[in-house]
Every structure is written in C-alpha cells, then in structure tokens.
Amino acid sequence: MNLSIHLDTTVNHAVVQEIEDDNLVPAIEAISLNVYYADFLAVREVDIAIQKQKITALIGPSGCGKSTVLRAFNRMNDLIPVARTEGEVLFHGQNIYSQGVDPVEVRKRIGMVFQKPNPFPKSIYDNIAWGARINGFQGKKSQMDDLVEQTLLGAALWDEVKDKLQDSGLSLSGGQQQRLCIARTIAVRPDIILMDEPCSALDPISTLKIEELMRDLSDDYTIIIVTHNMQQAARVSDFTAFFTLTEDRAGVLMEYGNTTDLFTNPKQQVTEDYITGRFG
C-alpha cells in the first residue's frame, strides 16, 4: 500500500488517494468529471476509481456533490434537464457518456437504490418480476418463480415474505420495503449497485439489516453508498471517499482511501475536521 499525493493545480487542493493493491480491479472510474447544473459547477474535476466487489462510501458535508457524483455513475443526472456532464465515466472500458450509449442500458447494469423506499404499488412478486419482464425475460412461470425466490433470498427478505408474495409491496415495513427495492435492483443482475442514503429513513435494526445485506451482496456486486452517517460508512465500507466544497461551492474529492485508515488517521486536515465534527 503506497501513499500517493498529487497536487491538482486546477482546483488548488491536494487529493490524497491511498489505494494501490494488485488484487483490486476498478469496476467504474470517473476521469476529470465535472457536473454542472445550468451554469453552476456542482462537481469539479473528480478522478476516482471504484473497486470491484467492494463497498465504497462517499461522504462529505451537505452540498459537496457526493450524490451528484453517485448519480453520474449511471447517468441519472441526465433526468435533470439543466444537468450537464464533462469528463469520462469508464465502465468496462467504455465511456458511458459517449454518443450512442443508451442510458437505459447503463442503468440496467448499474442500478440504484434511493433514500426513501419506493416499491411499485404492485405485489411483492411483481416488484421483482416486473424488471425481469421488461428486460425481456421469456421463461416459464416456474422459472420466474425461481427468479423471484432467488432474488428475495439474495436480498435476505424471502423468509419474511414467502407466504405473502401476492400482498402489496407497500404493505411491508420500511426496512422490508427497502430490501424489496434492493431485491428489485439485483433482479436484473447489475454489476454495480448505487445507494443514495439507503438507511436514512429506517430504524436502527432495519439499518443494520441493510448493512449486513450490503456485506453479503459485495461478494457479487460492487456497491457505492452515499451516507451522512459516518458510523455507517465506517462500519460497512471498504473504501471511503471524502468530498468537500471549495470557496465557489463546487464539490471536490479531497481524500480517498481505506476506510479504516481514513477514520483513524486521515491524511488531510479538512478530512479530520469533518469526521471529528469541526465543520459540516
């Protein structure tokens, strides 16, 4: 593990990145990523390689651009009319912002779980089956049943819902709804799962269940989570990226490294100040 520091003169801050391990493979990589909302530069010159089958937490004060960066990873910002993206996001060697890349296809491979659980107003079964069907699933009913069961098992929800698959997804508790949303995301077998504050609306036990689920899922999926809860980032993630605001209110990446290092001995004073509650 080597420490590399490069001074990014365009933004006048030192980005400390401390992830160098031959066993790690990037799953997705942002290169010189800028995101604008109309004329406002929300995220400036972000370079970050997210590691495959690891959990990466994006943390930082409100308005630092962490959710914008998260949404840039599956072109979710495209849905905001005034949003504009510069730079590259490489996924399997391909810039997902290149002309000709279908954002719907990108979102199939890179799924997203939102802050508030948002199951479809359909049965638990259909919440899972729907995604498969619109993605061209042609199998028999028994094969769909298997897919639903396997997916709900994967989301650690099967035992709780197996006897009421035809009940509405909205009849579940908040934590169960969120796991249903995670199940819906993994039903289409993405490579990457983006999570935007997935536990902020949940009670502590439901939160811990989601965190345990994330750990299990990271055997097969790459997970990127935005969280305001630093203890959650410390508990659940392998790597942490700390973003902050510059004077012109653009979000920048300040430090990125092993979660244990970042929370016990951060390299940047501004990271230390944030995680010890001196600002933010």
Binding site: M230, Q231, F263, T264, N265, T271, E272, I275, T276
Partner: peptide, 8 residues
C-alpha cells in the same frame, strides 16, 4: 463515536 484524533 469519536473518530480520527479523538479516537486515538
């Protein structure tokens, strides 16, 4: 839940 220097 101290972090960084506080935890050290």
């Amino acid at each position: 839940q101290p972090m960084a220097k506080d935890l050290r």
